[in-house]
Every structure is written in C-alpha cells, then in structure tokens.
C-alpha cells in the first residue's frame, strides 16, 4: 500500500518479467514511465521542427479546413 488508498499487487512473475497491478482512486493518474518519457521525447522533437517541413504543411491544411476553435493572434 502507498498511503491508504493506493494498492500495489504482484500479478505475475515470468523469468525476469514482473507484472504489477495498481489500484488507485480515479483522481490519481497512473502512467507508465516509458510513456511519460516518450511524451518528453516527442515534445523535444516538436521544438526542432523543420522549416521545409512546415512549408509542406500548407498542402495539408488546404483540405481539412473546416472550423477551428480559439485562434491565434499576431
């Protein structure tokens, strides 16, 4: 147990693989570290966009231009 409302249980061990079960209240987000790290990796890549690639985006937006929320300002 972690605190009084998070329960961790061992589900299975096979060789060097361990499966854990995590029971937590709905308000607590449980994410695998790998996924979080992948998000960080994609975020870093997202800050290094290619200008040439961005120019090619134009083509993409010509089709699916229905409506949009919010909007930016210059």
């Amino acid at each position: 147990m972690i605190g009084h409302d998070i329960e961790i249980s061992l589900i299975d061990i096979q060789g060097d693989q361990v499966r854990l079960g995590i029971k937590a209240p709905k308000s607590i987000a449980v994410h695998r570290k790998e996924i979080y790290e992948e998000i960080i990796r994609e975020n870093r890549l997202a800050t290094m966009n290619s200008l040439a690639g961005i120019a090619k985006l134009k083509k993409h937006t010509e089709n699916g231009a229905e409506d949009k929320e919010g909007g930016g300002k210059n």
Binding site: A46, N49, G53, K56, H60
Partner: peptide, 12 residues
C-alpha cells in the same frame, strides 16, 4: 495536439 514536423512529410 502537438505536432512533430520533420522534413519528410511522411514523418509528420
């Protein structure tokens, strides 16, 4: 949603 935009359009 955050986009990643490499040079090759296939990788967007």
């Amino acid at each position: 949603a955050i986009a990643v935009i490499p040079e090759d359009p296939k990788d967007i």
